[in-house]
Design a protein around this nucleic acid. Structure first.
Length: 295
DNA sequence: CATTCGTGGTC
DNA sequence: TGACCAAGAAT
């Protein structure tokens, strides 16, 4: 027997070395950036490209440099400052997380993964990202980029499936044993997926572990499973909600129902979406029946 | 476990 | 032009 080319921690070491030379200089990765700043960046980055997050993150950190600063701000200010990043419930939850940090943790973002996961808007990924990037803990961090890297490098598949509990074990098997390197590896694996092992056409020529990649060794087989269907947007409630909120972000005093009619023709869908925005706490109704961002 | 939740850039 | 996609969480 010659060798069973099982991909292991040596691949992780190689990816860390690659990261040291290839990493982007992102503002939330700079030295001195605290866990609060990391938390804000991570929530903004949920399903949102880096280029769009950068300017908004800078503005937020200047305005609200601590959880305590954000916790006292009315939701309307937070929703407006969120701008058009999308999924504005994230803005609301981030503010609620700030309140929780003040109430439960004395204004200091907790370093414990369980305590982080208990914060509004913070799930498995974000909790570990804050513990790892914000506090330097050697936590496994699995996002969509990492799942794609593991799918190809380890499992020889073109695409990652849905997130599973086993993802954490998969990435742990690649992680360098040294704690400092393990911490670096968590960012490095994400960066590899973001820059090289991308969803579209991967740049295998630039990949530091291309000679060990199970997918390449198998001849880059195409994705076999059912094609994951892309989300529609035009005509959906998401678009309508976006339109309605857009009107309210621009208006600096409550608007009447007539002003919202311009946002979307279909009265049934418009009404349903307005109700859902009210239910989400993204919109508030005044005593005289007009609508506004929550004060 | 599948859906829902924004927005805009890219190929 | 339009499908595809971008550091997920909540339900």
């Amino acid at each position: 027997m010659t060798s069973t080319a099982t991909v292991g921690p040596d691949a992780g070491e190689t990816i860390v070395d690659w990261y040291e030379t290839a990493a982007r200089d992102l503002p939330w990765r700079r030295p001195g950036v605290d866990a609060w700043a990391v938390l804000v960046s991570e929530v903004m980055l949920q399903q949102t490209p880096v280029a769009r997050v950068e300017p908004v993150w800078r503005e937020w950190m200047a305005r609200w440099p601590t959880p305590g600063a954000l916790a006292t701000v009315p939701p309307a200010d937070v929703i407006r400052a969120w701008g058009k990043l999308g999924y504005p419930r994230r803005a609301l939850r981030l503010r609620e997380a700030a309140v929780a940090v003040v109430e439960r943790h004395g204004g200091v973002v907790p370093a414990d993964v369980s305590a982080l996961e208990a914060l509004p808007g913070v799930g498995t990924y974000t909790a570990r990202a804050v513990a790892c990037f914000g506090y330097g803990q050697p936590q496994p961090v699995v996002d969509t980029n990492v799942r794609r890297v593991v799918a190809r490098l380890v499992h020889g598949r073109a695409e990652a499936g849905n997130a599973r509990a086993a993802d954490l074990a998969d990435i742990a098997a690649l992680t360098p044993p040294d704690a400092r390197r393990a911490t670096r590896f968590s960012v490095a694996a994400m960066e590899l997926g973001a820059l090289v092992c991308v969803a579209g056409t991967p740049r295998c020529g630039a990949c530091p572990v291309r000679d060990r990649c199970a997918w390449r060794l198998a001849g880059c087989p195409p994705h076999d499973g059912p094609p994951r269907r892309v989300q529609k947007f035009a005509g959906t409630d998401r678009q309508v909600r976006g339109r309605l909120l857009d009107v309210l972000r621009e208006a600096h005093e409550p608007v009447d129902a007539a002003a919202l009619e311009a946002a979307w023709e279909d009265a049934v869908q418009r009404g349903r979406c307005l109700d859902s925005l009210l239910a989400d706490g993204l919109v508030e109704q005044t005593d005289d029946g007009r609508f506004t961002l929550p004060t």
